[in-house]
Amino acid sequence: MQIPAPFDYARASSVDDALALLERHGPESLIVAGGHSLLPMMKLRLARPEWLIDINDLFELDFIVRDGDRLRVGAMTRHTTLFESDEVRRLFPIITDAERTIADPVVRNRGTIGGSLCQADPAEDLSTVCIVLGAEAVIRGTAGERVVSMAEFHVGPYETSVAHNELLVEVRLPIRPRSGSAYEKVERRVGDWAVAAAGASVSLAEDGTIDHVAIGLTAIGLDGTVTEAEAMLHGKAPSEELFVEAGRLAALACDPLADQRGAIDYKRHLADELTRRVLRRASSRAAEAQEG
């Protein structure tokens, strides 16, 4: 039987209350959101917080609202809510694509976007999605709020720039005109973490050429995006030849490890193939957005 080591439990009633509790109980206290990454780690004693601060009552962090040219998503928004949101599907189909593959519908009822980004597992699908979409993270501490890019947010595997006495409260996604996005993942079985995955976002200029493009990879050793492929695509009209070349560059840019999920060559092959597929789908979605 896997049981966490003993800890004390407190339920926060507001963001300020959560911050005060973190301050009071010090670095040995941890936030629990959906608990679907943290509790398994506590059961394995890979995490042993002395205090757990439960933020599940913070309904004020469970929202998806459009605010001008960005979509604001609260940190406590569950995977299921993101997956089922029509507005999300319309603006950022990459999120819907990714959510379909994250764990399973029961896990998705609990896990949150905030927990996913703060967990920062190298195979975290929403991390790639947020990098590709150029998201900003809103982090709050007792001293106030700061807004950071995903590049600043991600410090390394399982490490973010959210300090122990801070909360991730919101993710902001910029809305670009004539855009399309897509995500595709290869997993060993339904609900498993990625062997490899790719995500892309494409925005077209009025003449149909690529005005902005971002390509991200999951679980195969790439921080940030595939900048070489992005530079190559910029300003050109989307075409199969370009996608093939982008796939080749993605396979070169990644740095996968061999593990029980696959060999290095196989993972590079996936980077290549999945990059082509998401570019194809993101571009055709962008073209539809342009017509519609």
């Binding site: 439990y9 339920r11 679907h36 509790l39 439960d54 029961v106 896990v107």
Partner: peptide, 15 residues
């Protein structure tokens, strides 16, 4: 009303 995996929820969280 929503299915959850009860091995991954604390009883305290269900309070």
């Amino acid at each position: 009303g929503l299915p959850v995996k009860s091995c991954t929820v604390l009883a305290a969280m269900a309070d």
